[in-house]
């Protein structure tokens, strides 16, 4: 097995073009997944490409419509940056300890594609897209199409994710709840993001995303659009209907952290609580 350390993007793309590699950014998840023993090298089963030192991908920038976060930008920098969407800050604040935030990246969390990945839930709700680049070009893919299943992403062997693109949006109400077995340093039992926009008593935008209750993040634009255009009173009258709409989409599992009954009930409670508090 070979390992490559890329110092710039072209270098990384060249490596990917000639050799199939696992890409490692901060490495916090990759190391655990491939851990062998104390004193032994990380037991990767493939070639690896380290991209963490690519400075040109360490950025957060914006234009009038979008925010762009580079592949090597650490969670801590995202948390501290003024232009980061507040909901994303809330998520990062709770998703990992300071030590992890100083090494882990947002794009690593995406590429990891764990159903319990907290930031992904927020990025689904924010309609985020990812930019995938290869030596011959690039493509931009909506996140919900990019993530295909548990730890499965739509990344070609010669491609890497170079940035995440987040459309700018104002919301009048935002909520994030990480339901974890303890208050920090823990993997979610489930997580919830709710975003909505109200103007003159009318619901203009409604987004609900749920993590760890299905193989990928649950977000359903058909349900959301059914209620967009209603006034607050109508929205609240419809809470039971909304819960009925979501109920069949929530199909969690039993595991060592929680059980499906709890995950489902809490997911529905959180949707209800979010809408009641509008």
């Amino acid at each position: 097995m070979k390992s490559y350390i890329a110092k710039n993007l072209v270098n990384a793309l060249e490596v990917l073009n000639k050799d199939e590699c696992e890409i490692v950014a901060g490495g916090t998840d990759m190391l655990i997944q491939n851990r062998s023993h104390t004193g032994m090298s990380i037991g990767y089963k493939t070639n690896v490409l380290y991209i963490s030192l690519i400075k040109e991908l360490d950025y957060i920038k914006e234009d009038s419509h979008y925010i762009y976060i580079g592949a090597t930008t650490k969670l801590e920098s995202i948390l501290k940056n003024k232009i980061t969407p507040i909901i994303l800050k809330k998520i990062i604040h709770e998703m990992a300890s300071p030590a992890i935030r100083h090494t882990a990246t947002l794009i690593g969390n995406i590429a990891n594609a764990s159903p319990a990945g907290d930031s992904i839930v927020g990025l689904y709700a924010l309609n985020a897209k990812v930019r995938c680049q290869c030596i011959n070009g690039e493509r931009i893919v909506p996140l919900h199409k990019f993530i295909r299943g548990v730890r499965i992403i739509d990344l070609k062997f010669n491609e890497m994710i170079t940035e995440v693109i987040i459309p700018k949006n104002d919301f009048s109400s935002i909520a994030f709840k990480k339901v974890a077995p303890r208050k920090s340093d823990a993997i979610s039992k489930m997580s919830f993001v709710g975003l909505l926009k109200i103007e003159d008593d009318l619901l203009l935008d409604l987004r609900i995303a749920l993590g760890a209750v299905y193989i990928t993040v649950v977000r359903n634009k058909d349900i959301e659009s059914k209620y967009i255009g209603k006034n607050i009173k109508e929205l609240k009258e419809n809470i039971d209907n909304i819960l009925k709409d979501y109920e069949p989409l929530i199909k969690p599992i039993d595991d060592q952290r929680s059980n499906k009954e709890y995950r489902k009930k809490v997911a529905l409670n959180l949707i209800k609580d979010f809408l009641l508090n509008v």
Binding site: R182, S184, D185, A186
Partner: peptide, 16 residues
């Protein structure tokens, strides 16, 4: 044993 590491076996942190 299902909770076989410090991620799955939950002891309190300073936050808890």
């Amino acid at each position: 044993i299902m909770q076989k590491n410090m991620t799955d076996y939950i002891i309190p942190t300073a936050m808890d």
